[in-house]
């Protein structure tokens, strides 16, 4: 599940039909996500809430900021997790396993 604090895909985005509709720099828009990154992943991190002690090391080290800490258990935004494995590698409790994605 994904935490509500994280940005998401802009599903309303349509490619510009004319020059006038084109985005020109950040004066027009910031934070416009038009594609997910989930397809980059071979393995997905799965957090075992029972083993997690909430040290938040995974949360702080995750380059993509996809781990959420607002819920009782940590959440992962699988739309934008790239499966780098840093979270699992750094977890001091071995609470995160990297599970192969099935296609």
């Amino acid at each position: 599940m994904k935490s509500g604090t994280k940005p998401g895909l802009n599903r309303d985005y349509r490619l510009p039909a004319s020059e006038g509709e084109m985005i020109f720099g950040t004066g027009d828009v910031t934070g416009n996500l038009t594609a997910v990154n989930s397809g980059w992943r071979t393995f997905r991190p799965v957090i075992d809430g029972g083993k997690c002690v909430r040290c938040l090391l995974c949360w702080v080290y995750c380059p993509d900021g996809v781990i959420g800490k607002e819920e009782k258990d940590l959440t992962v935004d699988y739309d934008y997790c790239k499966g780098c494995g840093i979270c699992a590698h750094e977890c001091p409790r071995a609470a995160i396993s990297m599970v192969r994605e099935v296609s």
Binding site: K6, N37, P63
Partner: peptide, 13 residues
């Protein structure tokens, strides 16, 4: 918990 950089296409890790 909010992110001000997100979804960028940098390499994993």
């Amino acid at each position: 918990d909010r992110e001000l950089i997100y979804g960028q296409k940098s390499c994993p890790g």
